[in-house]
């Protein structure tokens, strides 16, 4: 639950319960909007996003840092929010899958590529792939096909067998698809 304060700041409601760990005041930007909140020291960034800010597009697949479903951009770099504490986001710029395309905006080219190439089935892993690739786009310029493939190995998908995810990623980065590559 959260409410919007008078200066347009988002303040998630702090649960009434005392936690056996310290509390901290944090302020950060989430998808371009200022947010201030009180959080327990041990609160994971995933839980802060999902349960306090109700940004449930960031998913939890393992809480062990393996699957990448929880990937978000912290100051433009893809990180695993399940291995990040909410307090570590203090003063930083956070972006989640909800921030890629606004509610009234068309899908971004990256999202559209996943749709067109059928790069998703259940869609549970998808936000993690999108954010991880969004991070690559911001920092890596245009990767080679090999670099892109290597990058994709950081996220798990149990449904697709990855073939269509690779096609989607290549389309999004303007690289030739696998068939064209092997023909060429």
């Amino acid at each position: 639950m959260s409410f919007r304060g008078s200066e347009g700041q988002i303040h998630p409601t702090t649960p009434p319960l005392s936690e056996p760990s310290g509390w901290h005041d944090i302020s950060l930007t989430v998808n371009g909007e200022p947010v201030s909140a009180q959080v327990e020291s041990r609160l994971l960034l995933t839980d802060f996003l999902r349960h306090r800010l109700r940004l449930t597009g960031t998913h939890v697949g393992c809480e062990q840092g393996s699957c990448g479903a929880c990937s978000v951009l912290l100051d433009g770099v893809a990180v695993r929010s399940c291995l990040t504490l909410a307090v570590q986001a203090n003063g930083r710029d956070l972006r989640t899958v909800e921030g890629l395309a606004g509610p009234d905006e068309p899908l971004t080219a990256l999202q559209q590529a996943f749709h067109e190439q059928h790069g998703m089935q259940c869609g549970f892993c998808t936000p993690g792939f999108l954010m991880s690739l969004a991070g690559l786009a911001e920092h890596g310029g245009t990767p080679s096909s090999d670099e892109l493939d290597e990058h994709l190995a950081g996220n798990f998908c149990r449904c697709t067998g990855y073939v269509n995810i690779r096609k989607a990623a290549r389309q999004a980065f303007g690289l030739p698809g696998p068939e064209e590559a092997s023909r060429g």
Partner: peptide, 20 residues
Amino acid sequence: ARVEDDRLLRGQGCFVDDLD
């Protein structure tokens, strides 16, 4: 192309742990 995709791509799917 699937009608399912749009909301999932926007992070607007509703999996069981997403229920409010």
